[in-house]
Design a protein around this nucleic acid. Sequence first.
DNA 1: GTTAATTTTTAGACAAGTCTAAAAATTAAC
DNA 2: GTTAATTTTTAGACTTGTCTAAAAATTAAC
Lengths: 219, 219
Amino acid sequence: MLTQSEENYLKAIYSLSEDQKESISTNLLAEKMSTKPSSVTDMVKKLSDKELISYQKYQGCELTAIGKKTALQIIRKHRLWEVFLVNKLNFGWDEVHEIAEQLEHIQSAKLTDHLEEYLGYPKVDPHGDPIPDKNGIFEKINKSIALSDVNLKGKGSVVGVEDGSSGFFQFLKRYEIGLGTEIQVMEKFDFDLSVLVLINGKEISFSSVVANKIFIQVK
Amino acid sequence: MLTQSEENYLKAIYSLSEDQKESISTNLLAEKMSTKPSSVTDMVKKLSDKELISYQKYQGCELTAIGKKTALQIIRKHRLWEVFLVNKLNFGWDEVHEIAEQLEHIQSAKLTDHLEEYLGYPKVDPHGDPIPDKNGIFEKINKSIALSDVNLKGKGSVVGVEDGSSGFFQFLKRYEIGLGTEIQVMEKFDFDLSVLVLINGKEISFSSVVANKIFIQVK
DNA sequence: GTTAATTTTTAGACAAGTCTAAAAATTAAC
DNA sequence: GTTAATTTTTAGACTTGTCTAAAAATTAAC
């Protein structure tokens, strides 16, 4: 039985492990969790005692097989609840993250499985992220790529975004960008890593910050 | 912003206030919360500081108007989630209490309201208890009465039960008692306050403990 | 209307999760 | 390959919610 805090740490470690293969440093994890490195040290010791992560002093941490499976179950719940909120309760995909952060901690495997069935076994959440099944297995069907990594003249449709802040969603709304929106990269500027894209016939310039957060599936 | 513990105390105080008009004693609340009186003293001080209850040393506590409203919002969430679990996810009415105990603490008024709409504005939960609206108002349409209080030869259908323990639900299942089951009180024994009832053509004797927990709507 | 039983509160302690400030280890710089 | 900068850990403290044990207040008993 894990506390909400422990679950959030596991999720954060999993998320960071997706971006980089090496072990996760204390400082990096502290930043992700919006807390202090000393607090992280305390927590990784605890999670290590529970054999959910491997941890050596000064060497960062890494999920064990059990830890990874546990993290995936939390992610599974988060994404299923997001589907519920958007598909059944008519929330916008830009307002479900915070609520799902709470719902993901509800303890009942039966509830999760019933919810999944009720939703018709969805494969992806409203942000385009894949939903692990009860064994933690999910298809990496969305070989999505950040706008910043798309080749010149590359074209595709939006399948997901990173960053959960509402400010970013406001931004997307302003430019009428949603799941499925067609985007083509017209020019790439090396000096500031910004990109000029074509959306609905209009040319728009995106900073590298934005270009790193919008993911499209190239055709 | 209240902690889950604070919310649970408010709910308990509300529940006890339903049974008796006087202020709630520390010991009684401790028993209800399955904790020690000293812990209760600490908590009622905190809730009193927040003006959710009125509390005078050695005099017990009582919900303020704001405290009552807050408690009713938690109860509202609990019961709406129970309806969801039973009506949408096909849970039995005897297995939803524990999960609803967790879901009732999810913080989002918008979620609660959307859920209510999605469920079609139900008036009662699967146990027959009324669901308060967003202003904390609910109809006391179910003038249900405990089996122990039904007059001799009184007849009616089950509209609710008290006690959330799974043992009790097992008991009900064993005797095939559910919402709507017809019950008639055939005899009442003063010496042990037990009752002899007629259910589905069979005569069954209920102890006073049980008779206090089954509520019927007399015709 | 004292004394006894019960209830309630206080005082001090503990675990979880966090913090600050200081010490220790690692990494980088020259 | 020492010295300096950075990262990480330790030590001690704070908060929340709980506990035990003892003291204080209330209620009951005679």
